[in-house]
Simulated scan of single mutants.
Amino acid sequence: MRRVDLRKSKDFFEDLAKTIKEAKINEVLVILFEIGDFSAVEKSFSFVKEQGCELLNSLKFNQVDWTIVIKKV
């Protein structure tokens, strides 16, 4: 399991795609990112699936941060 902090990312989805590409098969990633509005959270669910990963969990970390737990399959 690896924790990846993308809270300061300029382009969250580009950085997320790069992180997923570098991950090993069956590796679990805990991705932390900032939410301005909820649309990034909803989009991340379908984006993760398109990248060949399984969404294991999604939760609000605090008032401005969100966490998704994914597994590369």
Rank of each mutant, 00 (worst) to 15 (best):
L6D: 12
E34T: 12
R7L: 04
R2K: 15
A40G: 09
S9D: 02
E22W: 09
K24W: 13
S58I: 04
G36Y: 15
F33L: 00
D11N: 15
K72E: 06
V30S: 02
L32Q: 07
W66K: 01
D65E: 14
K49N: 08
K43S: 09
Q51W: 08
W66L: 00
E27R: 11
L59V: 03
Q63T: 12
R2C: 02
T19K: 10
I35T: 11
N57W: 14
K72C: 02
D5N: 14
N57D: 13
K8N: 13
R3H: 07
K24Y: 15
I25P: 15
K8W: 03
N26Q: 14
I68W: 03
D15A: 05
L6H: 10
S44D: 06
F38E: 11
R7Q: 07
F13N: 10
W66R: 00
N26D: 10
K60C: 01
D15G: 15
E14W: 05
K43Y: 15
T19D: 04
D65Y: 09
I31H: 00
G36W: 12
A17V: 05
K21E: 15
R7A: 02
K43T: 13
A17N: 06
E42R: 08
L16C: 06
E50N: 13
I25A: 09
F47K: 04
S58P: 00
K21P: 11
V64C: 01
F12C: 00
K72W: 07
F38V: 10
E42V: 13
F38W: 05
E22T: 09
I31N: 02
C53M: 06
W66T: 02
I25D: 08
K10M: 05
E50P: 02
E50F: 03
F45C: 06
N57R: 09
E34I: 12
S39M: 01
S9Y: 06
D15N: 14
V69C: 05
I35C: 05
F38G: 10
F47D: 04
E50C: 06
E22Y: 13
T19G: 12
E14T: 15
